[in-house]
């Protein structure tokens, strides 16, 4: 992989993509728009969905019930709670909010069988947007992304090219936030820019 050396912007902590993302910019009419969502908070929340105390506590701390429907995400303001397994959710929140959220959850869930793990640095988020975003995903993802099947609010844990990812669609453009393990992020970024070649790619900061 050709690495484009670009330093971390001043005052920020490095991300896995700082030295991979090339110059910001690209054609205005590009069908694909890519950006990295730097250091969003990520908590793995575990608990049993049939444990009322757990669900009540989690709902109280999050402000919204963790979704019980597979492959969906609940959102409240900028926070997304993504279903990842019958007793597992990934809570994605604004950068720097994860510690407070973790404490809020811990206190709301005291006495229940649960687990919270801070995985904010385990993965990063690549935002893929644009008229060709769906076509780009389809090049490496075998699940049905047609709007009749996969729309806003839907999420999936699956393979994208040779990386395991979790992604969710959050608008009709369509736009997707793709969570990818930190060490796979350079590969996936390069793959996405390559897959977007035929549609034109714009990189945003």
């Amino acid at each position: 992989m050709v690495e484009k050396v670009g330093p971390t912007p001043p005052g920020l902590d490095p991300t896995p993509l700082d030295r991979v993302i090339g110059p910001i910019g690209g054609p205005a009419e590009a069908g694909v728009v890519l950006s990295e969502r730097r250091h969003w908070g990520k908590l793995v929340l575990r608990g049993e969905p049939d444990d009322k105390k757990f669900i009540t506590g989690a709902t109280k701390a999050l402000g919204v019930a963790p979704p019980s429907k597979p492959n969906t995400a609940a959102t409240i303001q900028s926070t997304a709670i993504i279903w990842t397994a019958p007793n597992e959710w990934l809570v994605v929140s604004e950068p720097g909010t994860e510690a407070a959220l973790e404490s809020a959850l811990e206190s709301a869930l005291a006495g229940t069988h649960h687990a919270i793990t801070n995985v904010s640095d385990h993965s990063t988020i690549i935002r893929l947007s644009g008229t060709a975003a769906r076509a780009v995903l389809a090049k490496g993802c075998a699940i049905d992304l047609h709007p009749r099947v996969f729309g806003v609010g839907q999420s999936a844990q699956t393979n994208l090219a040779k990386a395991q990812v979790i992604f969710r669609q959050f608008d009709e453009m369509p736009s997707y936030d793709i969570l990818v393990r930190a060490s796979f992020a350079p590969y996936l970024w390069a793959w996405l820019t390559d897959a977007g070649l035929e549609f034109g790619v714009r990189v945003e900061g």
Partner: peptide
């Protein structure tokens, strides 16, 4: 049973 139909390479 949870995620619906997926290709066998995910399994």
């Amino acid at each position: 049973p949870w995620c619906g139909p997926r290709d066998d390479e995910e399994f």
